[in-house]
Simulated assay, not measured.
Amino acid sequence: MKPHIMGEGEPAAGPAPTTLTDIVFPGATNHHGTLFGGAGLSAMDRVAFVAATRHGRVPFVTASCERVEFKKPAHVGDIVSFIAKPVRAGRRSLTVEVEMVAESIVAGERHSCTRGAFHMVAAPDPVLGTEWSLPPLATSHAAPPPDKVRMADVVFADQANSSGTMFGGDAIAFMTKAAFVAASRRSRRLAVLVCSERLDFHHPIRVGAIVEAVARVASTGRSSMKVEVELWSEHLLSGERSQTAKGLFVMVAVDGSHRPAPVFPDEFDSGQS
Protein backbone atom coordinates (compact mmCIF):
# COMPACT_ATOMS: atom_id res chain seq x y z
CA MET A 1 0.00 0.00 0.00
CA LYS A 2 1.43 3.38 -1.01
CA PRO A 3 1.86 6.08 1.62
CA HIS A 4 -0.50 9.05 1.74
CA ILE A 5 1.26 11.87 -0.07
CA MET A 6 0.14 15.26 1.14
CA GLY A 7 -0.39 17.93 -1.49
CA GLU A 8 -0.93 21.65 -1.36
CA GLY A 9 -4.49 22.43 -0.43
CA GLU A 10 -4.74 19.68 2.19
CA PRO A 11 -4.35 20.28 5.95
CA ALA A 12 -1.00 19.04 7.23
CA ALA A 13 -2.28 17.73 10.57
CA GLY A 14 -4.45 14.98 9.11
CA PRO A 15 -7.47 15.11 6.82
CA ALA A 16 -10.16 17.57 7.83
CA PRO A 17 -13.81 16.57 7.66
CA THR A 18 -14.80 16.05 4.02
CA THR A 19 -17.45 18.40 2.66
CA LEU A 20 -19.64 17.95 -0.41
CA THR A 21 -21.41 21.21 -1.22
CA ASP A 22 -24.25 21.72 -3.67
CA ILE A 23 -27.11 24.04 -4.55
CA VAL A 24 -30.75 22.96 -4.30
CA PHE A 25 -32.09 23.26 -7.84
CA PRO A 26 -35.75 22.68 -8.79
CA GLY A 27 -34.93 19.34 -10.45
CA ALA A 28 -33.83 17.90 -7.10
CA THR A 29 -36.94 18.91 -5.16
CA ASN A 30 -40.20 17.23 -4.25
CA HIS A 31 -43.72 18.63 -4.65
CA HIS A 32 -43.20 20.77 -1.54
CA GLY A 33 -40.32 22.66 -3.17
CA THR A 34 -37.75 21.21 -0.79
CA LEU A 35 -34.81 18.89 -1.40
CA PHE A 36 -35.97 15.36 -2.19
CA GLY A 37 -34.99 13.05 0.67
CA GLY A 38 -33.52 10.47 -1.69
CA ALA A 39 -31.21 13.08 -3.24
CA GLY A 40 -30.04 14.13 0.20
CA LEU A 41 -29.44 10.55 1.31
CA SER A 42 -27.50 9.82 -1.89
CA ALA A 43 -25.20 12.80 -1.31
CA MET A 44 -24.67 11.75 2.31
CA ASP A 45 -23.61 8.28 1.20
CA ARG A 46 -21.22 9.70 -1.42
CA VAL A 47 -19.45 11.97 1.01
CA ALA A 48 -19.27 9.15 3.58
CA PHE A 49 -17.50 7.05 0.94
CA VAL A 50 -14.99 9.84 0.23
CA ALA A 51 -14.28 10.38 3.94
CA ALA A 52 -13.84 6.63 4.52
CA THR A 53 -11.50 6.27 1.55
CA ARG A 54 -9.40 9.20 2.69
CA HIS A 55 -9.00 7.50 6.06
CA GLY A 56 -8.25 3.95 4.99
CA ARG A 57 -6.94 4.36 1.43
CA VAL A 58 -8.63 1.13 0.38
CA PRO A 59 -11.92 0.48 -1.45
CA PHE A 60 -15.02 0.75 0.74
CA VAL A 61 -18.65 -0.30 0.43
CA THR A 62 -21.63 0.92 2.44
CA ALA A 63 -22.89 -1.75 4.82
CA SER A 64 -25.71 0.19 6.48
CA CYS A 65 -26.85 3.57 7.71
CA GLU A 66 -28.83 4.50 10.78
CA ARG A 67 -30.41 7.38 12.66
CA VAL A 68 -31.05 9.36 9.47
CA GLU A 69 -33.98 11.61 10.35
CA PHE A 70 -34.88 14.63 8.23
CA LYS A 71 -35.78 17.24 10.84
CA LYS A 72 -35.72 20.43 8.74
CA PRO A 73 -35.96 20.91 4.96
CA ALA A 74 -33.60 22.52 2.49
CA HIS A 75 -35.41 24.84 0.08
CA VAL A 76 -34.82 25.70 -3.56
CA GLY A 77 -31.86 28.06 -3.82
CA ASP A 78 -30.26 27.00 -0.54
CA ILE A 79 -26.63 26.00 -0.33
CA VAL A 80 -26.44 22.50 1.14
CA SER A 81 -23.29 21.13 2.72
CA PHE A 82 -22.79 17.45 3.53
CA ILE A 83 -20.05 17.17 6.16
CA ALA A 84 -18.55 13.74 6.81
CA LYS A 85 -16.23 12.73 9.64
CA PRO A 86 -15.05 9.24 10.63
CA VAL A 87 -15.94 8.71 14.29
CA ARG A 88 -15.16 5.05 14.97
CA ALA A 89 -12.70 2.62 13.37
CA GLY A 90 -12.67 -1.14 13.79
CA ARG A 91 -10.40 -3.68 12.17
CA ARG A 92 -12.08 -3.41 8.76
CA SER A 93 -15.16 -1.32 9.48
CA LEU A 94 -15.50 2.42 9.78
CA THR A 95 -18.39 4.52 11.04
CA VAL A 96 -18.71 7.90 9.35
CA GLU A 97 -21.00 10.57 10.78
CA VAL A 98 -22.56 12.81 8.13
CA GLU A 99 -24.45 16.04 8.76
CA MET A 100 -26.49 17.85 6.13
CA VAL A 101 -26.63 21.63 6.65
CA ALA A 102 -28.78 24.07 4.65
CA GLU A 103 -27.74 27.70 4.27
CA SER A 104 -29.82 30.63 3.05
CA ILE A 105 -27.78 32.65 0.59
CA VAL A 106 -29.25 36.06 1.43
CA ALA A 107 -29.80 35.71 5.18
CA GLY A 108 -26.73 33.57 5.80
CA GLU A 109 -28.70 31.49 8.28
CA ARG A 110 -27.64 27.87 8.63
CA HIS A 111 -29.60 25.00 10.08
CA SER A 112 -28.98 21.29 10.42
CA CYS A 113 -31.38 19.26 8.28
CA THR A 114 -30.31 15.80 9.30
CA ARG A 115 -27.48 13.75 10.68
CA GLY A 116 -26.77 10.07 10.18
CA ALA A 117 -24.22 7.33 10.79
CA PHE A 118 -22.92 5.36 7.80
CA HIS A 119 -21.17 2.07 8.44
CA MET A 120 -18.54 1.41 5.79
CA VAL A 121 -16.64 -1.85 5.25
CA ALA A 122 -13.13 -1.93 3.80
CA ALA A 123 -12.28 -4.28 0.94
CA PRO A 124 -8.46 -4.16 0.86
CA ASP A 125 -6.30 -5.76 -1.80
CA PRO A 126 -5.42 -9.38 -0.85
CA VAL A 127 -1.70 -8.56 -1.12
CA LEU A 128 -2.04 -6.60 2.13
CA GLY A 129 -2.60 -9.89 3.95
CA THR A 130 -5.20 -11.10 6.41
CA GLU A 131 -3.60 -9.22 9.31
CA TRP A 132 -4.21 -5.82 7.72
CA SER A 133 -6.45 -3.45 9.64
CA LEU A 134 -7.58 0.15 9.35
CA PRO A 135 -5.38 2.82 10.93
CA PRO A 136 -6.57 4.58 14.09
CA LEU A 137 -8.57 7.77 13.77
CA ALA A 138 -6.72 11.06 13.53
CA THR A 139 -6.79 12.98 16.79
CA SER A 140 -6.64 16.45 15.25
CA HIS A 141 -6.63 18.35 12.01
CA ALA A 142 -5.90 21.87 10.86
CA ALA A 143 -8.96 24.07 10.54
CA PRO A 144 -9.52 25.21 6.95
CA PRO A 145 -9.23 28.96 6.26
CA PRO A 146 -12.61 30.66 6.79
CA ASP A 147 -12.39 32.56 3.51
CA LYS A 148 -12.15 29.44 1.34
CA VAL A 149 -14.81 27.11 -0.01
CA ARG A 150 -13.79 23.45 -0.29
CA MET A 151 -16.01 21.04 -2.24
CA ALA A 152 -15.16 17.36 -2.71
CA ASP A 153 -16.82 14.69 -4.84
CA VAL A 154 -16.06 11.53 -6.82
CA VAL A 155 -15.82 11.35 -10.62
CA PHE A 156 -18.23 8.78 -12.05
CA ALA A 157 -18.44 7.23 -15.51
CA ASP A 158 -21.27 9.51 -16.69
CA GLN A 159 -18.91 12.48 -16.27
CA ALA A 160 -16.18 10.98 -18.45
CA ASN A 161 -15.24 11.55 -22.06
CA SER A 162 -14.16 8.87 -24.56
CA SER A 163 -10.69 8.75 -22.94
CA GLY A 164 -12.05 7.79 -19.54
CA THR A 165 -11.21 11.14 -17.96
CA MET A 166 -13.48 13.81 -16.53
CA PHE A 167 -15.21 15.78 -19.29
CA GLY A 168 -13.95 19.36 -19.37
CA GLY A 169 -17.47 20.76 -19.27
CA ASP A 170 -18.25 18.93 -16.03
CA ALA A 171 -14.99 20.14 -14.51
CA ILE A 172 -15.82 23.73 -15.45
CA ALA A 173 -19.34 23.37 -14.05
CA PHE A 174 -17.91 22.07 -10.76
CA MET A 175 -15.45 24.98 -10.55
CA THR A 176 -18.16 27.50 -11.42
CA LYS A 177 -20.40 26.10 -8.68
CA ALA A 178 -17.58 26.61 -6.16
CA ALA A 179 -17.12 30.18 -7.42
CA PHE A 180 -20.86 30.79 -7.01
CA VAL A 181 -20.83 29.55 -3.41
CA ALA A 182 -17.78 31.66 -2.52
CA ALA A 183 -19.20 34.81 -4.16
CA SER A 184 -22.69 34.36 -2.70
CA ARG A 185 -21.31 33.85 0.80
CA ARG A 186 -19.10 36.91 0.36
CA SER A 187 -21.89 39.21 -0.81
CA ARG A 188 -24.91 37.53 0.82
CA ARG A 189 -26.66 37.95 -2.50
CA LEU A 190 -27.23 35.77 -5.51
CA ALA A 191 -24.18 35.87 -7.75
CA VAL A 192 -24.06 35.35 -11.50
CA LEU A 193 -21.12 34.44 -13.71
CA VAL A 194 -20.03 37.27 -16.00
CA CYS A 195 -16.92 35.72 -17.51
CA SER A 196 -13.99 33.43 -16.98
CA GLU A 197 -10.86 35.53 -17.35
CA ARG A 198 -8.57 32.52 -17.47
CA LEU A 199 -8.90 28.75 -17.18
CA ASP A 200 -5.94 26.38 -17.50
CA PHE A 201 -6.05 22.58 -17.41
CA HIS A 202 -2.82 20.89 -16.32
CA HIS A 203 -3.66 17.21 -15.80
CA PRO A 204 -6.60 14.89 -16.60
CA ILE A 205 -8.83 13.46 -13.88
CA ARG A 206 -9.55 9.75 -14.13
CA VAL A 207 -12.89 8.14 -13.39
CA GLY A 208 -12.99 7.07 -9.74
CA ALA A 209 -10.74 9.88 -8.52
CA ILE A 210 -11.69 12.29 -5.76
CA VAL A 211 -12.05 15.79 -7.16
CA GLU A 212 -11.93 18.86 -4.94
CA ALA A 213 -12.52 22.52 -5.79
CA VAL A 214 -10.97 25.19 -3.57
CA ALA A 215 -12.39 28.68 -4.15
CA ARG A 216 -11.76 32.09 -2.63
CA VAL A 217 -12.74 35.65 -3.45
CA ALA A 218 -9.50 37.32 -4.52
CA SER A 219 -10.82 40.88 -4.96
CA THR A 220 -14.06 42.86 -5.00
CA GLY A 221 -15.43 45.87 -6.78
CA ARG A 222 -18.72 47.61 -6.16
CA SER A 223 -20.80 44.67 -7.36
CA SER A 224 -18.24 42.36 -8.94
CA MET A 225 -15.98 39.75 -7.40
CA LYS A 226 -13.02 37.90 -8.84
CA VAL A 227 -12.95 34.35 -7.56
CA GLU A 228 -9.90 32.11 -7.84
CA VAL A 229 -10.72 28.40 -8.10
CA GLU A 230 -8.25 25.54 -7.94
CA LEU A 231 -9.31 22.07 -9.01
CA TRP A 232 -7.45 19.19 -7.35
CA SER A 233 -7.57 15.51 -8.15
CA GLU A 234 -6.78 12.90 -5.52
CA HIS A 235 -6.03 9.24 -6.13
CA LEU A 236 -8.41 7.14 -4.07
CA LEU A 237 -5.89 4.62 -2.81
CA SER A 238 -2.56 6.45 -2.68
CA GLY A 239 -3.89 9.84 -1.61
CA GLU A 240 -1.56 11.53 -4.09
CA ARG A 241 -2.93 14.94 -5.07
CA SER A 242 -2.26 17.15 -8.05
CA GLN A 243 -3.64 20.46 -9.20
CA THR A 244 -5.48 19.67 -12.40
CA ALA A 245 -6.92 23.08 -13.25
CA LYS A 246 -6.98 26.67 -12.10
CA GLY A 247 -9.37 29.44 -13.10
CA LEU A 248 -10.33 33.02 -12.40
CA PHE A 249 -14.06 33.74 -12.54
CA VAL A 250 -15.78 37.14 -12.44
CA MET A 251 -19.05 37.01 -10.51
CA VAL A 252 -21.55 39.85 -10.04
CA ALA A 253 -23.92 40.19 -7.10
CA VAL A 254 -27.53 40.81 -8.12
CA ASP A 255 -30.68 41.89 -6.32
CA GLY A 256 -34.20 40.47 -6.54
CA SER A 257 -34.68 42.11 -9.95
CA HIS A 258 -31.45 40.50 -11.22
CA ARG A 259 -29.71 43.86 -11.43
CA PRO A 260 -26.13 44.44 -10.18
CA ALA A 261 -26.09 45.15 -6.46
CA PRO A 262 -23.36 46.29 -4.05
CA VAL A 263 -21.14 43.68 -2.42
CA PHE A 264 -21.53 43.97 1.31
CA PRO A 265 -18.25 44.38 3.28
CA ASP A 266 -17.38 41.79 5.93
CA GLU A 267 -14.48 40.60 8.04
CA PHE A 268 -12.75 39.02 5.05
CA ASP A 269 -12.51 42.36 3.20
CA SER A 270 -11.15 44.91 5.63
CA GLY A 271 -9.57 47.80 3.79
CA GLN A 272 -11.09 47.01 0.40
CA SER A 273 -13.44 49.38 -1.40
Rank of each mutant, 00 (worst) to 15 (best):
A171G: 14
C113N: 03
D125R: 06
S224G: 00
H202C: 12
A183E: 10
M120D: 02
P265S: 14
L193S: 15
M175F: 07
R185D: 07
G33L: 14
G168V: 12
M225Y: 02
P73H: 05
A89Q: 10
R150A: 09
C65Q: 12
V154M: 15
H31T: 14
M251P: 02
W232R: 08
M1H: 05
H32R: 15
M175Q: 13
I5E: 11
S257T: 13
S162W: 09
G247L: 12
R150E: 11
S273A: 15
S42M: 12
P204D: 01
R185H: 06
A178D: 06
H111A: 09
G14F: 01
G56K: 02
V154P: 03
K2N: 08
A122M: 06
V76G: 01
K85Y: 03
I205L: 07
K71E: 14
N30Q: 04
H4K: 10
A48H: 00
E103M: 09
V96Q: 00
G168M: 11
F174W: 07
R259S: 11
I83A: 04
E109M: 11
W232P: 00
S162H: 08
A173E: 13
P262Y: 05
M166Q: 03
G9S: 06
E240S: 09
A183H: 08
K85C: 12
L128E: 02
A183L: 04
P145D: 04
A218N: 10
K72D: 11
T220K: 14
S270A: 12
S42F: 09
G208S: 14
E103P: 01
G108H: 03
V192W: 09
L199E: 01
S42T: 08
P26E: 02
L134R: 00
A117W: 03
R150Y: 13
V192Y: 15
P135R: 08
R189T: 10
G33N: 13
D78L: 05
G164T: 13
F49E: 04
R54C: 07
D200V: 10
L237W: 01
G9C: 02
G40E: 01
S223C: 05
H31Y: 06
V68F: 11
L199D: 03
V227A: 02
C65I: 12
G169K: 00
V194L: 10
M1R: 04
F268T: 12
L137N: 01
T114F: 09
P73T: 07
M44C: 13
G77C: 02
A245Y: 02
A160F: 10
P11N: 13
D22L: 09
S270T: 14
F60M: 14
